[in-house]
């Protein structure tokens, strides 16, 4: 049965961008994010943050977390500095309440911004 809207857990979607030496596999990223958050906040903290990777391709992706824990999630992402020996740096582009909002506002925008120099 569906949960009543008022009883649902509130969530936020973080649009992020990865700057890395080589390309990264989705499964490695998922493991690294949960490892980083668990080592920083412990099992209880991780269960409150409830991180989940919604989408990821190549450079940018969307991560879901609990509404009240965006700062902690940001800190967890910032603590990642290598994934299987590949050095990376993750930057949060923006936070939104819906997947659609996060994609339209931050990820597509950053794609447009990057393709601009090629047009000239």
């Amino acid at each position: 049965m569906k949960t009543l809207p008022t009883l649902r857990e509130k969530k936020r979607y973080l649009a992020f961008e990865i700057n890395s030496e080589n390309s990264i596999l989705r499964q490695d990223l998922v493991r690294e994010i949960s490892n980083s958050i668990i080592s920083l906040f412990g099992d209880i903290g991780a269960s409150q943050i409830r991180p989940a990777l919604m989408s990821f391709e190549g450079r940018s992706g969307i991560l879901r977390c609990a509404r009240e824990k965006t700062v902690e999630t940001r800190a967890g992402l910032a603590c990642i500095n290598n994934i299987r020996g590949i050095r990376v740096s993750i930057r949060v582009l923006g936070i939104s309440g819906t997947i659609k909002g996060a994609t339209e506002k931050f990820i597509q925008q950053s794609l447009i911004k990057e393709s601009e120099p090629e047009r000239r």
Binding site: S20, R74, A75, L77, A78, N82, S89, R91, V92
Partner: peptide, 9 residues
Amino acid sequence: VYDLRSPRE
């Protein structure tokens, strides 16, 4: 550059 983090981070 991989050690750099943005101000919000």
